[in-house]
Amino acid sequence: MTPLEMLAVLVAGMAAGTINTVVGSGTLITFPVLLAFGLPPVTANVSNTIGLVPGSISGVIGYRRELAGQGGRLARLGVASLVGGLVGAVLLLRLPEGAFTAIVPVLIILALILVVVQPRLSRWVARRRERDDSAAPEHGGPVLFAAVCATGVYGGYFGAAQGVLLMGLLGVFVHDDLQRLNAVKNVLALIVNAVAAVFFLVVAEVSWQAVALIAVGSIVGGQIGAKAGRRLPPAVLRGVIVVVGLVAVARLLLG
């Protein structure tokens, strides 16, 4: 990479770390940048996943106060994320690269739709809670466990907007403060990314230069997201995500 390209990847990693901690979808920032600089799609996805793990850890540390008293919930749902993330990572490397190139544009478009409708989803969850005061399983029950596992498969395979999916599921099935649920989301996404990253380290081709740049940027971004990210205009963040996501779709489809 040229120095300018290295700076772009570093900045993209910082933006992704911030967005992942606040909402999710940071992959839609970093993945198109890596594609634009010539990395093959699967190598770009693998390197991106590994590089974002330190940023996920940073975000979890930033939300540590909200995690208090949620050990049981994290243990239960963490198993679902671990299993799902490993299955998704295996699928990424077992399926031919042509399948990834064909599937990912569809996944990105679905992720972009989720990003756009996320405010409405959040309002719907809030209204549902106001109407339904009945007791809910502390950990969301078996349906949430299965849904988190399925989300982990998606996250291990590609992962864009994994956080949006998790927040939607947690908000529907678990009655708790949304900031506490956001902290759980960060841990579950970290588990998926970490187990996939460990698998990729052993068997996949990795661009270590990209990994290092994204890692450094995402660590800084994770702290920004935990401390000040909630003050950033949500519409601006969503607009950036949609633009770069469309760029990624065009890059994959046009080659």
Rank of each mutant, 00 (worst) to 15 (best):
L86G: 09
L86K: 03
Q162P: 02
N182F: 09
L188K: 05
I219Y: 01
G156W: 01
L254K: 05
M167G: 02
A197K: 02
A235Y: 07
V104E: 05
L181P: 10
H139Q: 15
S122G: 15
R230Q: 06
V202S: 13
V244H: 01
V240S: 00
W208G: 13
I29M: 10
V174D: 04
R129F: 13
L91V: 14
L7E: 05
E97Y: 13
R230S: 05
V247M: 08
L34R: 02
A250C: 03
L7T: 07
G71F: 07
I29N: 03
V184D: 08
L114I: 13
I57P: 07
Q70H: 12
N186F: 10
L144I: 06
L34N: 03
I29D: 05
P32L: 01
F200P: 04
G245R: 00
L74V: 15
L144G: 10
A204F: 09
I113P: 04
L7G: 10
P3N: 05
A160N: 00
A226E: 04
R180W: 08
T151A: 07
R131Q: 15
F100S: 14
R238S: 00
G17D: 02
A68K: 15
L82I: 10
V125A: 14
L112C: 11
V53E: 05
L246Q: 05
V53Q: 04
V164C: 03
L252V: 10
